[in-house]
Each structure stands twice: as C-alpha cells, then as structure tokens.
Design a protein around this nucleic acid. Sequence first.
DNA 1: GTCTATATCCGGATAGAC
DNA 2: GTCTATCCGGATATAGAC
Lengths: 200, 200
Amino acid sequence: MARDTRERIITAAATLFRRQGYTGTGLQQIATESQARVGSIYHFFAGGKDALTVEVIRSGGAAYGAMVGALLANGPDDPVEALGAMFEQAAVDLAATDYADACPIATIALEVASTNEPLRIATAGAFEGWLEGLTTFCHQITDDPTGARDLAVMVLTALEGAFILTRAARDPEALRAAGRSVVQLATAVRARSVDANGAS
Amino acid sequence: MARDTRERIITAAATLFRRQGYTGTGLQQIATESQARVGSIYHFFAGGKDALTVEVIRSGGAAYGAMVGALLANGPDDPVEALGAMFEQAAVDLAATDYADACPIATIALEVASTNEPLRIATAGAFEGWLEGLTTFCHQITDDPTGARDLAVMVLTALEGAFILTRAARDPEALRAAGRSVVQLATAVRARSVDANGAS
DNA sequence: GTCTATATCCGGATAGAC
DNA sequence: GTCTATCCGGATATAGAC
C-alpha cells in the first residue's frame, strides 16, 4: 500500500495541475482526490509541494513523451502523414476530455517560469526530452540535422500553441489547422532535402 | 485621480498576471503594486477579482494585437519577411525582459480554461481578435481565404508555443527556430498561391 | 472615492500520537 | 506509514468611517 499511496498522490496531482494549474491546486485537494492525508504527502515528499511537483513534471513528461513516440511509431508509414495523424489524434482526445487533458506540463511551465527556478528547470528538461525524441523522428523527413531540429521545434511549438487556442475556444479547429500547416511544412522540408541529395 | 487609480490597478494586475499567473497573484499584491487599497479595487470592479481580470484580458488583448499589427505594418515590405522579423523581435524582447514579458494572456488562458467560464470566454475572444488581424495580414501572402486563416493560426500557435519553450529554457532559440519555420511555410504557401493563379 | 478593519476561509507546513 | 491537530500567513470579500 505504501507504494500505491505515493503513486496515487502523483497521479491525482498530475490531473489537478493539468486542469487547474500549479498555484490553483492545493495540497488538501490533492490529498482528498488521492484518498490520502496531507501528512502522507509530506511523508513521501519531504520537500513539500515543490518536491511533489518536480516528480509530477518528471514522470508526466516521460509518460507523455512515450505516448507521443508510440503514436508516431504506430501511425501511418509515411512520417509526414504520421505527424498529421498525431495532431488529429490530439484534437479528438482533447474534445473527448471536455478540453481538459492537453499538455500535462504547459500550464505549470508558464506559471513557474519567472517565479520558481527549480520547477522552471524541471519543465525545461521535459520539453528538451520531447524535442530530442521528435528530432530523431524528423530525421526520417530530412537528413539535415539543423532542419530536423527546426522541424521538431515547430511541431512542438505548434502543438503547444494549438492546445492553448483549442482549450480557450473549446473548438479543435486550431489543432486541425496547425496539423495541416505542419504537414505542409514537413512536405516542403522533405522536398528540399530530396532536392539537395538529388531526386530519386 | 479617479481614472488614474483604475488604470494603475489594471496595469499592475496585467504585469503580475503575466509573470505569476492568475491564481498566483493576490489582490493584496495588486493593490500594493498599484499604490492603491484593496477597497479601491472593489470600488472600481464591483465583481471582484474576476471582473478585474476580464478587463485585464480585454484591454491587454487589444493592446497586444495593436502592437503586433504595428510591428507587421512597419516591418519589411515583404510580408513573409515581416513575419520573420516579428519572431526575431519577440526573441529580443523576451530576452531583454528576463524572459518574463511574453504573451499577456496565455498563462491566464491555460489556468482558467477548465475552471472559470467567464474568463475562458474572455481569453477566447482575445485570441480570435488576434487571429482576425493576422488573417487579414496573411491575405497579402495568399489569396485563398482558408489558406490565409490556416497560416494565421500557424503563426499564432507557433508564437504561443515558442513563448512557452523560450521562457522555460530561458533561451530564445525556440522562438528563432519557430520564426525560421514560419518563414519557410509562408514561402511555400505563397508559391502555391502564385502557382494557382498562374505565375507572373 | 479612499482607507481601515475585519470576517471567513484556505494555503503550505509541522509535531507528535498511534 | 498513517492520521489528527494545529500554527501562521495570505486569500477573497465586505462593512462602514471619513
């Protein structure tokens, strides 16, 4: 049960942070939602709310990165189409969760960027991990290392930005439009790469 | 002085919300920062914190939209280059403000999207206003109405997403990379449009 | 319009019994 | 490991003197 309680606390905190943000969520609420006591949170996370939040960012970041990686790996064979499918899946998922479950750390990242250095560093680490995974994937589209990284940055920034607009408007159209543009850009990047290497 | 106090309250609230978020900022702090009393906030905003926040979103959204519009209008004559210059300017500005002053309403938008319907609607209105302005601008790049709107969505989502990554990493590289990709995409969109209308 | 005082509640954090 | 009780500060909001 010990391990379970710790996991339940992390899961509850992750869900609440995603929907209400970091400052908007109290330890009391996390305890209630995870069927634990506030004392238990301090038992497992001696550093208090910040220590718990670092763990939420770390584990949530890893889980989300793995989920996106699996989605791209199991999607269409054509990597450009796989990117488009990912945006479509995000649009479907977000609408299905009443526009609540978008990026697990974006809200926290903006809240703490200028106010809490340890948490800011944790969010930066999660984003960098995702970028590395996406960059590897984008190497299937272009051989140019800088081009692959730039494309990966564009995929992630477009996704994060579209999450904001989609949640605000409660309309997945921004996510779909961003997906269309990413596909168009990736197509252009690939054409350029093929061109540079000589057409096949 | 009456009018001044109200303005000072809105300005202070906007600055604090941008750096600490909505739930992370208290009325006491807003009062201190604006050299007013908490009672004065309730005098001017009978609806309390939410009424003040709606006004912050409304006026801040209009001001930011006007600023971006002026930046694009006074930038390079080539509209595609103007978009690239806008991202570069954003990178410079963000670094100059210690990575604090990015989008005035993005943090609020994510915090309230699932928890406060009146504020969520206010943020959606601000984003939609910006999108309309950007779409008009993008008509200089493509005649296709859907294409112009899609490009506008991409510009805004890439900008918002890059703000998140840039603030988290305290490194403007994400904004620069997003700018490069937006320029590349806009170039491809324009080529397509020219192609459809017959090359000049 | 401005300012003080205060009501009520919730925040994070801690001590110690069990 | 779990649970209760509690400290202390800060949150939003209100009442009323000036």
